[in-house]
Amino acid sequence: MSSSNTLDQPLSIIEPHGGLGVALIATLRRDLTLMLRRRSEVMNPLAFFALVITLFPLGLSPDPELLATVAPGLLWVAALLATLLSLDSLFRADFEDGSLEQLLLAPQPLAAMVLAKVVVHWLLTGLPLALMAPVLGLMLGLPAGSHLILMLALALGSASLSLVGAIGAALTVGLARGGVLLSLLVLPLYIPVLIFGAGAVQAALLGSGVAAHLAILGALLALAVMLAPWAIAAALRISVNG
């Protein structure tokens, strides 16, 4: 064994030395790499979103006026369900291979570390959904003037959905089939986001009061950013060591 390196020197107790920034960036990078290597998991919610919206004109009626009136609600419900679909895998792989246990034992604040994981989830689920929505909106005959508002509302709202959903995912990660329970836990909390999200697009169609809806979505997001990381961290501790 070579002894040319610092690994063989006498060791001593080390004081906690922070390094939260390094750990956060590494976690962001790791989760992004992981997700980009399992593309199907990224594509699933997007494909679901597109499929559901494609089916509506076929099932409902091809009448553009009717479709345009229901479009905000349809797009929002489909995006919400697509997000829900992707939540179950948020912590599951980490739980199964033991890296979640290691994350809990890291000398970093767990709330910050899980926030990094949720940010990755939003970047690869909520944000693509928001970017995709105008294309599907066109299919439903949504007037072009409301597309920007649709994207903005979905981007803001889906961030709240990711944060709140992660609490449910953390609570159910230890259960073999947590999917249905996860939906039951999380859906009631999604309702305000759905109401104000769809409301923003509706308001854009009517040409009034968009700012108020977006402001409320922003407020919901601010609340979620403040509280959800602590709840996710606590839920993970319960699930992993329950």
């Binding site: 390094v22 750990a23 590494a26 976690t27 790499t33 033991g98 890296s99 290691q102 994350l103």
Partner: peptide, 21 residues
């Protein structure tokens, strides 16, 4: 606690960063 989709080097890099450096 080893990620199957990551290489050994990437796995170790994350653990090193978790420790703060």
């Amino acid at each position: 606690g080893v990620k199957a989709a990551l290489t050994p080097l990437e796995n170790l890099a994350w653990y090193q960063a978790l420790a703060g450096d």
